[in-house]
Write a protein that binds this DNA or RNA. Structure first.
Length: 296
DNA sequence: ACCCGTGTTCGCTG
DNA sequence: TCAGCGAACACGGG
C-alpha cells in the first residue's frame, strides 16, 4: 500500500522489527527475479546473510536500509504497487506471494510480499545510495525536509502537464502518488486538470499545504511513536475524494465527486468547488481526438 | 468474462 | 533535443 505515508509506516515497522537481531538466512522466490534486478535473488541472499539492519531511512517511496556486520552495505526497497513488509513469529505461516524472506535471530521472519512484482529489492554496494540515479533525481522528502513553495512553483512552472499529473512526477515531491495527488488538489481547491504552469503563486502555496495536510492526515492515522498501529484493510475509505465517485462533495455538499482519467490513472475531484473555474487546459490526447474526429 | 488497481520504465512522436 | 504520451509489466479482486 505504498505512497509516502504507507512507506513511512513500513519504515517504522522495519525499525521496530529488524534493528536488533542478525539476519541468519535469506530466501528468495526464483520466479520473482525481476524484483532483484539488476542483481539477483541469490546475490541478495549472499549479501545479507549474517548481517544486521543498522538503520532504516525513507526518501519518498524508497526505503534505504544500512546493514552492519561487514563492510558498508545498503539495501534499497521500493514497494511498487502491491509490496509490503510483514513479520511472522516462529510457527506462524507465511502470507502468500512472498518474494523474499529474512530469517532473524530468535526465529521471527520478515517477509517481503508483492503479488504484482512491481517492487524492487536491491543491494547497494558500500551503502552509496547517493550514487543511484533513481534516488539522485528525487527532490527533497516533503515530510522530512518540508515543502519549499518557491521551489515547487519553479518546477510546476516548467511543465504544461495537468497539475495532478505533474504531482506524480517523483522529481517534484517524492512520495506523492495517485491517491494523495487527487487529495492535495481537492484540499487546495485546485482543478486537477489545470495546467501546472498556469497556477498562481498563491495556488502553488495552497497546493503545498494541501500535500502536507493529506500526508499528515494519513500519517497520524498510522499511530504515533513506538507502537506499531496495524492498519487493517477493508475499513472505511479515509480519503476526502479518492474512490468516492458519485458521492456528495464533503466540502460544498452541492455536487457529486467525479472520476476522470488522466495519464491512464483515475483522478477524483469536485467539479463545483475545485477552484480554477478558470477553464482547465485541454489535454493533448483530447485535442488530437477532436482533430482526428473533425477530419472524419 | 471484464474492468480496475496506492508505480515505474521504455519507446515513439511531434 | 525533449516534453508528453501510452503501452507494458503481472496478478488479484469486485
Amino acid at each position: 500500500m505504498p505512497e509516502l505515508p504507507e512507506v513511512e509506516h513500513a519504515a517504522r515497522c522495519l525499525r521496530a522489527w529488524a534493528l536488533s537481531g542478525r539476519i541468519l538466512a535469506v530466501e528468495t522466490d526464483p520466479r520473482a527475479e525481476r524484483i532483484f534486478r539488476p542483481g539477483s535473488g541469490a546475490a541478495l541472499a549472499r549479501a545479507l546473510a549474517g548481517r544486521r539492519v543498522a538503520s532504516v531511512r525513507r526518501l519518498g517511496k524508497h526505503l534505504l536500509l544500512e546493514l552492519a556486520g561487514g563492510g558498508p552495505l545498503g539495501l534499497l526497497s521500493h514497494l511498487g504497487m502491491t509490496g509490503k513488509w510483514v513479520r511472522r513469529l516462529p510457527g506462524e505461516p507465511p502470507p502468500s506471494h512472498v518474494r523474499a524472506s529474512l530469517v532473524l535471530e530468535g526465529g521471527a521472519v520478515l517477509h517481503y510480499r508483492d503479488p504484482r512484482l512491481f517492487g524492487r529489492l536491491r543491494v547497494v554496494p558500500g551503502a552509496r545510495f547517493e550514487l543511484l540515479p533513481e534516488l539522485g533525481a528525487l527532490g527533497p522528502d516533503p515530510i522530512a525536509a518540508g515543502i519549499d513553495p518557491v521551489r515547487l512553483a519553479a518546477l510546476l512552472g516548467r511543465t504544461r502537464r495537468p497539475v495532478k499529473v505533474a504531482l506524480l512526477d517523483q522529481r517534484i515531491l517524492p512520495g506523492v502518488g495517485n491517491i494523495h495527488a487527487s487529495e492535495a488538489c481537492f484540499r487546495a481547491r485546485i482543478d486537477p486538470r489545470r495546467r501546472a504552469d498556469r497556477l498562481s503563486p498563491g495556488e502553488v502555496a495552497r497546493l503545498a499545504r494541501g500535500v502536507r495536510a493529506t500526508f499528515d492526515r494519513a500519517l497520524s492515522a498510522l499511530g504515533a511513536g513506538e507502537e506499531i498501529a496495524y492498519v487493517e484493510e477493508g475499513g472505511e475509505n479515509p480519503f476526502l475524494v479518492y474512490a468516492r465517485a458519485g458521492e456528495r462533495c464533503p466540502r460544498c455538499r452541492r455536487a457529486a465527486i467525479r472520476r476522470i482519467v488522466q495519464a491512464q490513472r483515475s483522478t477524483y475531484f469536485c467539479p463545483a468547488c475545485a477552484a480554477g473555474a478558470a477553464r482547465p487546459a485541454a489535454s493533448a490526447s483530447a485535442s488530437r481526438a477532436r482533430a482526428s474526429a473533425s477530419r472524419g
